[in-house]
Computed example of a mutant assay.
Amino acid sequence: MDIIRFREVIKQREETDDEWTFGVEQCWKKEIEILTEDIPSTINFLKNDCTAEEYSWISEVIDDVVEKVRSKELVQCYKDLMIKFPEECVKYNIAGSIESAEAILTWEDENEKKG
């Protein structure tokens, strides 16, 4: 994972007015691309380098990331950060983001069994 590039995108996202939908979506697209390009290094980043602020910004795209890579380990790692960053969890409803990501994995598992 390119941490420097990720942090540049987060900075750009911070500076993008939420009302400017196109700009926000472009930032999200870049975040998803960076977070999904190398899952082991993304997990390493989350475990060792992710700040509280970065954690909260990732919550905007975590379900999209999981939909793209379907990694239970990634979701668990993101979930583990709830303990490290409790204020962000409350302020940004990160539990809801995690529930959404887990629902994607559950749906995938259930539908694979049917197929």
Rank of each mutant, 00 (worst) to 15 (best):
K29I: 02
I32P: 02
F85G: 04
D63Q: 03
R70N: 13
F6Q: 00
V75N: 07
L81K: 13
A95H: 10
A52G: 13
L74E: 06
E60W: 12
G115A: 12
K113M: 08
K30G: 07
I10F: 10
E14Q: 07
W28Y: 05
K84C: 04
K114Y: 10
K72N: 12
T21N: 04
S100L: 15
E67D: 14
V75K: 03
F22K: 04
D109P: 01
E37H: 07
C77Y: 00
Y92M: 07
S100C: 12
A52T: 07
F45Y: 15
V24I: 13
D17C: 14
D80N: 14
T42L: 07
C89V: 14
F85L: 00
G115M: 12
E33S: 13
K30T: 03
D17A: 13
E108C: 06
I104S: 12
E14I: 04
I43W: 05
V65C: 01
R70A: 14
P86Q: 03
E33G: 08
Q12V: 09
V69N: 01
V61W: 02
C50F: 04
E60G: 08
K113E: 11
S97M: 08
D2K: 15
T106G: 02
V65G: 01
A101Q: 07
Y78A: 11
P86A: 01
V75R: 01
E37C: 00
L46G: 00
S97K: 10
F85D: 03
G23D: 11
E73F: 04
T16Q: 11
C50T: 06
I94M: 06
E33C: 05
I104A: 08
Y55L: 02
P86N: 14
S97D: 11
K72V: 15
T106Y: 07
S56Y: 08
S97G: 15
E99R: 13
S100N: 14
A52D: 15
V9A: 12
E99V: 06
R13H: 09
I34F: 12
T42R: 00
D17Y: 06
W107C: 05
M1H: 14
L105F: 10
K113D: 10
I39A: 00
I3S: 02
C50D: 02
E31K: 11
K113R: 10
E53Q: 12
L74F: 15
A101T: 02
N93R: 11
E14P: 00
V75F: 11
E31S: 10
I32Y: 04
K11A: 05
Q12D: 10
E60T: 01
W57G: 00
R70H: 15
K113P: 01
K79P: 06
R7Y: 10
W107L: 05
S56K: 09
K11I: 02
V24F: 12
T42G: 03
I4W: 08
D109F: 06
I83K: 15
E37P: 02
E88M: 13
G115D: 13
I94G: 14
N93D: 15
K84A: 03
I34E: 12
Y92K: 04
K30I: 06
V66G: 14
C27Q: 00
Y55V: 03
E67M: 05
E67S: 00
E88I: 08
C27L: 00
W20L: 03
